[in-house]
Design a protein around this nucleic acid. Structure first.
Lengths: 335, 335
DNA sequence: CTGTTAGCGCTTTCAT
DNA sequence: ATGAAAGCGCTAACAG
């Protein structure tokens, strides 16, 4: 785009490139007010912009952090990015972004690309936190968000999954619900899902998985698929007071679509609550009780932690830390 | 992270850096099968990754495109990014991302940063398309999405705003609605809003702005604010069959919150339709009629166009083109 | 205060 | 088929 280099500016200003460089880096102490002003003018006039690439190479540093998200389509994701992005610009980092579309293979490629880029640090919203792709990463420059590995070696930031679900389930219990179901995408070893389910079991004291209802990740309700049948069966044969907890907003949507097609209504035919909070849940009639997680805060925390790590000098691989961001519970009229 | 450079590899392999470079670039014709294999082994063993920074500098090219979005929090934004991101990786570009949080000043900084980065191209979801920040950009390497400048000099991709709203409004008219209102954030010269409103006026033939209802961008309904009062006033005093068209999903949410607080229900007390489609609109009872825009397609189109531009050699600034992505209309029971 | 110069890691003629 | 060497645009000693 621009053809000007530091040499051109030096020539035009009748100084050396070193002086120009000093000017560029704010080392004004090293030059007379005169040259400083001259430089200011010329640079302004020529609209000269130093090449970040060359700078990075020369200083052997790269103020960029790489972000790899599992699925940008997930409504959880954009607030997290927003939080990261905010902190990035505060801290003077730029953000290069990759989306893996829930494809592990794609994620590996993305991470490789980012590594080649020589990003200073990595923030990963992992497709499968138990994958061994992350083994090769160092905890000195990466942090994981949202999903947590079974046996993690990397700092990770999650929301308070277990406790909050336990609490919400308890609320349903307190409201007299005796027959509770947990609706989720396949657990697949994914911590977010497992922890939420564990919270559910802690509260209900269910000892087996008979109250675990699983729908495929890409579930689209159709006429009378097996999930629809299951729900019908449960609703018609339940003895106690029947309630459902859905594992996130998308599962909730699928669930409600099914119950609507079945002509069941809440809170009459069943009670319902969900993880995640979105504006529309308040608009539903009745409003949906839910657990609100602060996704922006996750982004903030991730970048804060990363920055801290990047500015400390580790002599050895630091032990992984976990940070959980608190949630709160919103009770509406859905149970 | 890695300490290995091309020199190390050259030394280890007993060849020159030139040969290593050739290997790296797939110029296998320029070396014996022997050296090729030797290199392959050593590189594999050392886990060597060439520095993109150095490559960029040497080749004086940068396969990255910069994306500046107005507000990543807007649900419209992430599918667009998703589309761009998909094409980016197909085309071998990386994506550096900035969010302006609807702040023009921030956007200027972001664009400057991207320019300094020497990105190959720019995709901008503009805060204010009529700002003169964009004047300094060249149409050879940038494309604008979503919002269109009054007098544009840059290729832009938008959805079919005017026609689709005209069509939807016509549907309401056909359904017997005689008293229609357009609810929007302040028009503020923003093409998206203006075009949608124009479509509305085209259909209704209203000649003044008495049927234009504006809420602040950051509107939060409170007890009995002026918008709430306006709505109450309109509903109670309307003579004909009353309907509302909301300019996007967030306006719809605000609008529905207000009507709910007023204890009005649709489609009895009023009919309603909106721009934008989200899953939850189908869950509402009754379902909301809406205009579905294909945001992912916008992202695709933007990157496709950009790629085409980047690979053509312009001798002069190309004339700006407009591309509009078709929408479709989903009729449910809200009017 | 200012200039010289040797890199940063890689690419790319041009020789050999 | 391989290597020497001159850059790419900038930074950072080191001299002066």
């Amino acid at each position: 785009m621009d053809k000007f280099t530091i040499k051109d500016i030096a020539k035009l200003s009748d100084v050396s490139t070193a002086t120009v460089s000093n000017y560029l880096n704010g080392n004004y102490a090293k030059m007379s007010p005169n040259t400083k002003e001259k430089l200011a003018n010329i640079i302004e006039k020529t609209n000269y912009r130093p090449s970040t690439t060359a700078r990075n190479l020369a200083k052997n540093e790269n103020k960029t952090i790489g972000v790899s998200v599992a699925d940008i389509t997930n409504p959880f994701t954009s607030p997290v990015i927003s939080g990261i992005s905010e902190r990035c610009s505060e801290y003077g980092y730029k953000l290069v972004f990759t989306n893996s579309n829930n494809d592990e293979q794609k994620e590996v490629e993305n991470i490789n690309r980012l590594l080649e880029e020589e990003v200073a640090g990595l923030i990963i919203d992992p497709v499968n936190p138990n994958s061994n792709t992350y083994q090769r990463l160092s905890n000195t420059y990466t942090v994981i968000v949202d999903r947590q590995a079974q046996r993690s070696i990397i700092d990770t930031i999650t929301t308070d999954n277990m406790k909050s679900v336990e609490l919400m389930t308890q609320k349903m219990l307190d409201a007299g619900y005796t027959d509770l179901y947990f609706v989720t995408w396949p657990l697949s070893g994914i911590s977010t899902r497992i922890n939420r389910y564990t919270g559910f079991k802690n509260a209900t004291k269910y000892t087996n998985d008979e109250h675990l209802l699983t729908i495929p990740y890409d579930y689209e309700s159709s006429d009378d698929d097996s999930f629809t049948q299951t729900i019908r069966q449960i609703v018609t044969s339940s003895h106690g007071k029947l309630g459902f907890f859905t594992m996130n907003s998308r599962v909730l949507q699928n669930f409600l679509k099914v119950t609507q097609s079945l002509n069941y209504t809440y809170p009459d035919d069943f009670g319902v609550a969900t993880y995640e909070n979105f504006d529309w849940m308040q608009l539903m009639t009745p409003g949906i009780s839910c657990i609100r997680q602060d996704s922006v805060a996750i982004g903030h925390a991730a970048m804060d932690l990363l920055k801290e790590k990047l500015s400390t000098n580790y002599t050895s691989e630091p032990a992984p830390r976990m940070k959980t961001i608190p949630t709160d519970i919103i009770i509406r009229e859905s149970f």
